[in-house]
Amino acid sequence: MTTHQDSFTDKPYPQEEYLQSGYLSCQGCGGSMIMRHALKALGPDTVCVIPASCWSIIAGNWPYSSLNIPIMHTAFETAGAAASGVRAALDLKGKPETHVLAFAGDGGTFDIGLQSLSGAAERNENIIYICYDNEAYMNTGIQRSSATPEMAWTTTTPATFPKVGPKKNIIQILTGHKIPYCATANVAWPMDLIAKVRRAAETKGTTFIHALSPCPPGWKISSEKSIEVARLATHTKVFPLYEVINGESYHINFEPKNLPVEAYLSMQGRFSHLSKADIAHIQQRVDYEWKILLQRSMMEPFHMNM
């Protein structure tokens, strides 16, 4: 296991801002922070594509924009395709160095947008795709997505019949495309996130970052706990931080404190209905998934000299 990121000390945090205040995120929004960090990593020569998501609203209504880079709002399922289109056009205009960022939520990535994302990834389009994952359709009022964790409450998975089945493993889907770079990131580790976005930007081809994005209303947490709860997600191994190179070579970036999942679950109202047995079940799954991740990280990659 490599733990090359000392996220608290790898400062300075870049000071240039590509977002302007006044945008329409909820109190304590993780998604707005992820955009802010990502843009700091990419800089001004960036074009951003935003499919339907909280960010369709956060960015500001017409005739306003709270971003200092050009953005194109696009239909829910089209982030991969739209980013491909922008990429093609920029290349044709002799601007291959301009970054193309697709910035999509979990619904737009795990569910409706999976097809166009898969298309773009299979073509290995030179784009950076960031999924800010708040684990449900938050923009429409907290309906479950395939990124919703097992047994979580949402408005379509009520506490009496919570979400069935585990959260989809999007990284596994993307690594299945053998794209050059995949990573998970967590808003609680901004410098790690920035380092990963920078790495994605330096990598030619499709790069994918799955960034955990706490949502105070959707997770039923008090807004000031946003970062704290996100941090616990990693420390409980619910959301490990790792990178995958060429779909083969796994690197765990951060050794979790290995806290019990209950520490993470009990902070959130969306899990308040869980019984001890439920929590034990989730713990088992988390432990199992972690074991798989550990094993993968110890595998030799297919191409030895990549």
């Binding site: 329409l24 500001g60 017409w62 005739p63 306003y64």
Partner: peptide, 19 residues
């Protein structure tokens, strides 16, 4: 009014401090 759905200004006018 502009002809197209393209932004003209920032959101800075929106003082979210009132929230």
């Amino acid at each position: 009014m502009p002809e197209y759905v393209i932004s003209e200004a920032s959101m800075l006018w929106n003082k979210t401090g009132t929230w």
